[in-house]
């Protein structure tokens, strides 16, 4: 029932196990990143002064912004490596 929607496709069929693993992995990575992103947005909205704290001689707003961009890339690389396709 979970994997009943594989029909409309002419690509070689992927194993159900691999599909489930990749999907679960993806959701975990998604939740991790979303937590950081939400924290950043909420801090900007409700505790803006925190972002003025200097980190490496520049306001944390900039450091954290770079962190969110590079963090996405690091997670993406980890995810692509951990995914299986049998």
């Amino acid at each position: 029932m979970h994997f009943d929607h594989q029909q409309a496709s002419d690509v070689p069929e992927q194993g159900a196990k691999s599909i489930a693993w990749n999907a679960r992995l993806g959701l975990w990575f998604f939740f991790i990143y979303t937590a950081f992103y939400c924290a950043f947005v909420l801090i900007s909205a409700f505790a803006l002064a925190w972002l003025a704290t200097p980190l490496f001689g520049i306001p944390a707003s900039v450091t954290v912004g770079f962190g969110l961009i590079f963090g996405a890339l690091v997670l993406a690389l980890l995810y692509a490596r951990a995914c299986t396709s049998d």
Partner: peptide, 25 residues
Amino acid sequence: YSIGFLAGWVVALFVIAEPLKRLGR
């Protein structure tokens, strides 16, 4: 905007990319 635009790709990659590819043409 830069931060938000990039973060959106996390949703695309982790949640949407693979099933979407499997389901459509």
